[in-house]
Nucleic acid binder design. Sequence first.
DNA 1: CGTTCGATTGATGTCAGTCAACCCGAGTGG
DNA 2: CCACTCGGGTTGACTGACATCAATCGAACG
Lengths: 236, 236
Amino acid sequence: MNNICNCQNCHNDLCAKNVFIFSSLNNKEIEKIVSLIIRKTYLKGELIAIEGSNLDGLIIINKGKVKVYKNTYEGKEQILYIFSEGDFFGEKSLIINQEITYNIEALEDTSVCMIKKETFKTLLKEYPEISFKVMEELCMRLENLENIIKSMGAKNVEVRINSVLLEFAEKYGKTHDEGILLELPLSREGIANYIGLTRETVSRKISNLQSEGIIEVIGNKKIIIRNKDALKKSIE
Amino acid sequence: MNNICNCQNCHNDLCAKNVFIFSSLNNKEIEKIVSLIIRKTYLKGELIAIEGSNLDGLIIINKGKVKVYKNTYEGKEQILYIFSEGDFFGEKSLIINQEITYNIEALEDTSVCMIKKETFKTLLKEYPEISFKVMEELCMRLENLENIIKSMGAKNVEVRINSVLLEFAEKYGKTHDEGILLELPLSREGIANYIGLTRETVSRKISNLQSEGIIEVIGNKKIIIRNKDALKKSIE
DNA sequence: CGTTCGATTGATGTCAGTCAACCCGAGTGG
DNA sequence: CCACTCGGGTTGACTGACATCAATCGAACG
């Protein structure tokens, strides 16, 4: 179950300072926000929210990763976002007064900070800069989704795989002497559910990329991207 | 080419009153906004903006329809939005300082109202309610895209066709004694580019729906939806 | 060491894409 | 009034790529 604790024992910088939408505030203001925060933790695999439910606040990820998905008409999951440290969700129930339209599940042990709906609304009034940051963030998400749609519209399946590998490299990749070391946030099935394929197809395509020498697969969860340019070139 | 004219001779209600993001303002405030507006018109087929360019303001559609699309890696168009009266675009260059990431083309003769970037930023400061409305609108767009992704992730092609027919019925349908009369904003090819199929497939699936008696096709541009429930049921 | 869950590989089937022919209505011009 | 063209739409045959089903592998963990 969830732990709920006050935030006194949590380093400020973990909670709010690194969060994009609060990045325009000074330390004093951040402190105030931190004092308003409620913390929760979720175990890997735990459902944080379910389609149709109501979140009573904005939730900011402190540590960990979550996947946001809808169930498709065919009973599969369509993953929409992978959120990690500093990302937030639940804005939909704040801004348009609407229940959550997707499911959210912890991909690893995850701790989050919650700001109550009313508290957040007060914050928005008090610090209009936050509104602007929220708009920025929403715009970036829109753009992200627009690109996903573009790549899903592409019949060419390699394009989709390569796109998602590049996306993950951008977000989670670490430089490494032989290329970019990538810890995959999703299983093969997860990747498949993200880009609208089956796990077998993802598996096959990844094998192909390996035999072409473009990537190197290490176990199930790690990939080294040896030739990023080759991936990039293929999606132009 | 474009006509540029001042807005004195344009009825207030056309420009700003029916626009969602200004809906919280009173008449006097609307009048002020109207006075700041620059009008332009575009002919059917004319490009309003091209990927990579900079719009110098927020553009609100006064009359007409536009399609917003990206070119895919395979040289096709991926349509992202169909915007009509009251919708706006260009927010991306206002909020995050970024060039346009898609192409915008008039689907019919279209007149728009433009609010200069700096003017709009001043408005946002002056009337924080507008910020909130913009956030609402962005959230609704996100949700719309999330649903498109969900339906594109569905392998089942009928689901996508039926979804788009229902979407158009919602937006452009008129009640009619035999069902919902629908003036299609897009050609078969346009629909195909919206949901990631080919025009032939769209054509075939629409024929099927007709022979099942669920819809009736009138010429190339009109459809009567006789059995909306059947469409709805198939996408659950 | 055995169990389990995910990943891989192979064989087969299906359905949307492709290519090509044809249709149809609108506009054009003789 | 008819012939012609042109663009979009439809239809059919064929193909190929991904899904599906099934068997096997293999890494992780107790």
